Amino acid sequence: MNNPLNRAALDAAIENVHRAGLPGLFAEVRDGDQVWRGAAGVADVVTGRPVTADMRHRVGSITKTFTAAAVLQQVDSGQIGLDTPIGRYLPQLVPAQRGDAITVRMLINHTSGLAEYLPYAYPSLKAFPALADTGPQSLDDHRLTRFDPAELIEMGVTAPAVGAPGAAPGVYSNTNYLLLGELLKQVTGTTAERYITRNVIERAGLRDTELPAGPYVDGPHSQLYEAWFGMIDPPRDYTDYDMSWVGPAGSLISTVTDLNRFYGMLLAGKIVSPSSLAQMQRTVPVVSQEGRTIDYGLGLHPMDAPGRSTFWGHGGTVWGAGTLAMTRADGRRQMSIAVNLQRWNRLDATGRPQPHPIDDALAALYRAAMYG
């Protein structure tokens, strides 16, 4: 069923998220040829500069869809085997039996059993985000740290495994996608960032999307505020941040317009072959970083409500920035929403995030955007 864009409802819904406590957010919703762009709140809490819908933004793990698409292009061309062990390509990074047991597919869908490297790279984050005594100090310590991907991968590979290769549910881990970046480098002879830029970003005609080498966001953008579950109060500005800590797993900069264009083209079979797109939409259960079990494909996951159409896309968070981009399976209805505050929920005595009005207001905006 098609619900035309209700602009007044979308205007009200985005304003309600700002009123619930989010400094600023902006979005684009598309239905066929109809386009709504909206923004509410401020891009800078000091100056009061308003957010606008064309701002460039750190989109976090949405990067994973771009990286997965790049790998699947190499699968399409016969350079990478989806079910080939990663040890055949990168024996020095995933040696011995694990290299033989973990396939490329298991890296893309997070069923490799490889642990997350983040708590080892950022010691004060500990068991992010489950422990109430987690501290934010590492964020300040590493604003301009240049991480070596091989060192981060080693942290994840040498840490205790979180599951057996291929076992369900998988466990979401950025280690998988750093390895995919090294795999792309190995088979293409160029960096993952350069390959993705040339063969995914430029192929899709995205004008405001880039994988940055440095710590700054060029062009019009919002400041990005991290609350770290109320432990940073008031929330601190982490806009300038070296993104080598997450590389091809989460360092992309984009706009809501570019994201809708990208996912529309991907689901239309214009970025990878139809057979690879079908593989991307084969899901397995995966435990997310928030501890929820979600269905996850190859760099894509579905979102739907009972009796409603299925949407495909990805979400992403980095320090201070959050984004969600979802496109209906038929490609007609799309939404991309970006926010400039993260981890606004305070933690209870057991370390669990407490409900916050922002959560309900965002959920209402998602419903208005996806289903009218």
Rank of each mutant, 00 (worst) to 15 (best):
Y371K: 07
L266D: 04
P220L: 12
K270Q: 13
A9K: 06
A192S: 10
G113I: 06
S77H: 11
V29G: 06
D258T: 05
P234V: 09
D140K: 15
H142P: 05
D148M: 10
F147A: 06
H314T: 01
I294F: 00
P306V: 11
G214H: 14
S244N: 14
G247F: 04
G322L: 04
G32E: 03
L183A: 02
H301E: 01
I253W: 00
L125N: 08
L10E: 00
G297D: 00
G320N: 01
M231F: 15
V272F: 01
G291Q: 06
N176R: 04
D360P: 02
P234N: 08
E182S: 12
S244Y: 11
L144N: 13
W36V: 01
E210F: 15
Q186T: 15
P50R: 04
G205H: 06
D54G: 14
T145G: 06
H142V: 04
I337D: 01
V46H: 13
S222L: 07
R207E: 15
V35N: 11
L347W: 02
K185D: 12
A321Y: 02
A40E: 01
L90Q: 12
A164T: 15
M326G: 12
P274M: 11
D218H: 14
D359N: 12
A9E: 11
M265S: 08
P285H: 06
R207D: 15
T350P: 07
R49M: 12
I253Q: 08
